[in-house]
């Protein structure tokens, strides 16, 4: 039985993608149970700089939270829902 090249390619790609997914799932699981490694001693200035960067990210995240939890959309609808507009009915 002769197997076409196309079929072989598809099989290879499916296997690669499958292995990729399995690898990803495995690594994800590993990450969750991984024991926090002992921090390698680093120069204070470098550590401080990275910590300051983290703080910057935290502050940006706070801003995102504020934007995403904004209620102006509901406030605008409140104004639209004036019961007196239905008097014409």
């Amino acid at each position: 039985m002769k197997v076409s090249k196309g079929f072989i390619y598809i099989v290879i790609i499916v296997v690669v993608i499958g292995l990729g997914i399995l690898g990803w799932v495995y690594l994800k699981g590993q990450k969750q149970v991984a024991v926090t490694p002992t921090p390698t001693p680093t120069p204070t200035a470098v550590t401080t700089e990275s910590q300051l960067k983290t703080v910057e990210t935290d502050l940006k995240e706070a801003e995102t939270t504020e934007t995403e939890l904004d209620t102006s959309e509901i406030e605008a609808m409140e104004k639209d829902l004036d019961p007196s507009q239905f008097d014409v009915l």
Binding site: L69, T71, L81, P83, F86, D87
Partner: peptide
């Protein structure tokens, strides 16, 4: 009936906004 219910909806929106504002304040 519609007017009465719309009044309730409007009040509910006001209440929800208040709740969300409190949540935002707490989180931030």
């Amino acid at each position: 009936e519609l007017k009465a219910t719309v009044g309730d909806v409007k009040n509910k929106f006001v209440e929800i906004r208040g709740i969300v504002k409190k949540i935002v304040a707490e989180i931030l």
